Computed example of a mutant assay.
Amino acid sequence: MKKYIGLLVLMAMVFVLGACSVNKGEDTAQTAGNLGMITLGLMPDVDSIPFIIAQEKGFFKEEGLTVNLKSFKSAVDRDSALQSGNLDGAISDMLAEAFAKNGGFDTVITSMSQGSYKMVVNKDKAVSSIQDLKGQDVAVSKNTIIEYVTDRILAKGGLTPEDINKVVIPQIPTRLEMLQNGKITAATLPDPMGSIAMKNGGKLLSSSDQLGVNPGVLLFTGKAVKAKEQEIKAMYRAYNKAIDYLNKEPMDSYIDLVIEKGGFPPSVKGALVLPSYTKATAASPREVEAVVQWLHSRNLINKAFTYEELADTRFVK
């Protein structure tokens, strides 16, 4: 009899625990299903590829998240969309964050990104070193990561920004076209546009990779980090899944998808060289400090912001 009663008690416990497990699973699914939407701004560069993969391979969906990806061709258009509230976050850079804070806009750096920026010379120009650029036209986008990397490259080669003629061309595709048509001597371009320029005969002078410089970041509005904390965490989980995918899959299996969804020209096929992607990590305090110093020394911002004023590291390790 005691054994019979004991068996009934055990069965009852199993039933209750099973029901709790089902309810817990239902609660988790319900929580995932209740996640709001995130709208992200992308640029035509390799920083954006993990987000495209996360979208197209269903990694966002696996996390119960809806993500609206919007593409921009210039940093000015992207920043305007972010500051006007049309985006929750964007692939951006440390300079854009400092400018936003200086202008009173509430945005924060949530992680670094992994872009690559190349200074490339037109194939027909007699330039083989940084010193040869003295007095030459070099295309940049003003007061952006492109100009910052350009100045760092010039300094490494023994030139000052005043030694060259900076030609301001905000739109990246237009910058690439003018370089290839010989309208300018050199241009600083993000990948994959830099790699395309090289594939078409352009000569690499230097790059952010060679300098060990990485000022690319992901920004979110202060409103988004407060109201969409769970969504942002889910986004980063999906992002990390995309990194795992990119690190194990051959490029041939996704290059056509990236070209179509990323707005890259078809010529990127066979030219694209991806960075060694790593999972989401906090931006480098040292790099942030260098960028702030560069901006402050040129009177482009009124205050030398601290890392803590510009970054929110709670979403990544």
Rank of each mutant, 00 (worst) to 15 (best):
G6E: 11
G6W: 12
G6H: 09
L8V: 12
V14Y: 15
V16P: 04
L17I: 15
G18H: 10
G18V: 09
S21K: 13
K24S: 14
K24F: 09
G25S: 11
G25W: 08
L35I: 02
M37P: 01
I38V: 06
I38H: 04
L40T: 10
L40V: 14
G41H: 02
P50A: 03
I53M: 14
E56A: 11
F60G: 04
K61G: 07
L65M: 08
V67L: 03
F72M: 06
D79I: 03
Q83T: 13
S84D: 09
A98M: 03
K101G: 15
K101Y: 11
N102T: 00
N102L: 05
G104T: 04
G104D: 05
F105V: 10
F105C: 00
S111Q: 04
Q114P: 10
M119W: 06
D132Y: 03
D132R: 07
K134W: 06
V138K: 06
S141M: 12
K142V: 09
K142S: 10
I145D: 07
T150S: 14
R152N: 15
G158H: 09
E162K: 15
I164L: 10
V167T: 07
P170F: 08
Q171A: 10
P173W: 09
G182W: 01
T185R: 02
A187N: 06
T188N: 15
L189A: 06
P190Q: 12
A197M: 01
K203N: 05
L204K: 04
S208L: 00
Q210F: 07
P215S: 06
G216H: 14
L219I: 11
G222N: 13
K228G: 04
K228L: 07
E231Y: 04
Y236A: 01
R237L: 05
I255M: 14
G263P: 03
G270D: 05
L274Y: 03
V288P: 03
E289S: 13
N299F: 02
A304I: 00
Y307P: 10
T313R: 08
T313A: 13
